[in-house]
Design a protein around this nucleic acid. Sequence first.
RNA 1: GCGCCCGUAGCUCAGCGGAUAGAGCAGCUGCCUUCUAAGCAGUUGGCCGCAGGUUCGAAUCCUGCCGGGCGCACCA
Length: 581
Amino acid sequence: MSLKNLLTERLSQAFAAVAGEPVDPVVRRSRHADFQAEGALALAHRLGRPPREIAAEVLDRAVLTDLCSAVQVSGPGFVNLTVAGGLLDAQLCGMAADARLGAAPAGRPETVLVDYSGPNVAKEMHVGHLRSTIIGDATVRLLDWLGHRVIRANHLGDWGTPFGMLIEHLRDLGESSAAHELSIGDLDSFYKGARVKFDADEAFRQRARQRVVALQGGDPETLRLWRLLVAESESYFLAVYDRLGVVLTRQDFVGESYYNELLGPVTDELDRLDLLTDSGDAACVFPAGFLGRDDEPLPLIVRKRDGGYGYPATDLAAIRYRLQDLGATRLLYVVGLPQRQHFEMVYAVARQAGWLRPPARAEHIGFGLVLGPDGRKLASRAGDSVKLVSLLDEAVGRAGALARQKNPDLDPATVAEVARAVGIGAVKYADLSNDRSRDYVFDWDRMLALNGNTAPYLQYAHARIQSIFRRAGGTPASGGPTGSAPAGDSISVTEPAERALALELLNFGAVIGIVEQNLEFHRLAGHLHAVAVAFNGFFEHCPVLRADREVRNSRLALCDLTARVLRQGLYLLGIAAPNRM
RNA sequence: GCGCCCGUAGCUCAGCGGAUAGAGCAGCUGCCUUCUAAGCAGUUGGCCGCAGGUUCGAAUCCUGCCGGGCGCACCA
């Protein structure tokens, strides 16, 4: 049990005795002690007694001698709690012996579907896909680690009218040269080539339209060409994901086209349920509570006037499939904030149709924009969106230059490895360390800085620990992302810097539990940063290798535990922790 | 017009009901014969957009303004 819970439990009993009813002691971390209990303040009004008097009586009745080395009433009525060293030691040892580092596995594992990344076939991946891919990846890693059954859903844009134009362009170029252009990742010029012809050439436009009809009609040759486009794009996306270090695989690609045959049946079902309204020849659902301009009810257009289906229909088919066929009880849509209303409407319809029922729920994991230094949406000098691969190349390039400059002793292979870990890690961390719902400013110098709340700072703390173990003449017991339990040396913290580090480390499990619920990864990032800060303080003030044997072993164990927390935390964010840098 | 997100130090951001609002950068000061100074320690800097309200207590909750961004029927 966590320190906070232990303290809460004991204090609850004392508070209940004083108040004559259950009271939350409200235990929090404190600047004035290790923890503080604030419950007396809230109680004062109800009991009509001064809060300090209540706090004093609570302390009188509370059994805390085995948990705290000092307790004190302070300020207007806070109870300040200093955790006993022995308790810290025991907690640290327990944590060190736990492969999960004190993070509770899911109490009730469920099937979670995460919809993220979602690039468009035959189009370049750009910064617009960055956040969804990174946040989705972290979501998948965390929930999977906690023992949930996680289904990764990469909802590719692989269907729709643009494919008429793209397939015709493919035929014009010839399959082999088109495939070549696509396989080298030059999707931009392929798409633009098609676009230019479509805009300028009436004959091409005609062919494109007919091709759309053929595609929707299931013409075998058209489908073959379409599959070629999709397959080439998928290969390209996989290369980008590999570079990014994202766990998406080809099996996770379930594009919009997958739902084509479900569109009719879903529409029929909505009709049977009497949810469908004919509105100007379009088949619409009007979920309650959604109003558009001029206060008219806002429709979700299931079938367009021309008989075609748009993305609302696909999203409805997908949500039904995910709930009914895949059995997901938690649906996470990692999609930009602007689409908030659209998804709220989809969920509302799914609820009205009876598909989305508790305990199943759907959540929009929305996020803001990536801004350039000018405070506007990040764009290239030419004004168009920045290719994701060029962004990653630059990240690795900059990190490599920094690595060579800061640590000239590294051999080229290590530099390459460090450059990748640091460069890609910096980009991901810059994203995940900010509140999802806000826009954030993309700034190379800041995200690659060794100071502050950055990936390199955390990675550096980890590398310093590994350096200690190299010099100690042995490798730390832990190796993988989760690691195994260390040698079993007992930990004993005495110095203030050790205590500060211990208190941060012991917070890991609670933070994981919170992020499991709200998927606010900046809280995990903030925790890891606090751990790294505490470690660097410890590193400065508490020699490890020069200490006497007993202290040395204890500190080595503390170092290993710190490394494991950093490594596991970074792993959950999708970031590598190199052993040297 | 309606709805959503956001206004915290010069800059980039935490904090989202509790004690004197915290980091990093930028500025100023110290610390490398000692486990990676890619570090540490110190210091300067804030009517928490404005105004009401709720509360023993508000940056945090409610209401109304002001400012910025984004959505709101057949493109995804």
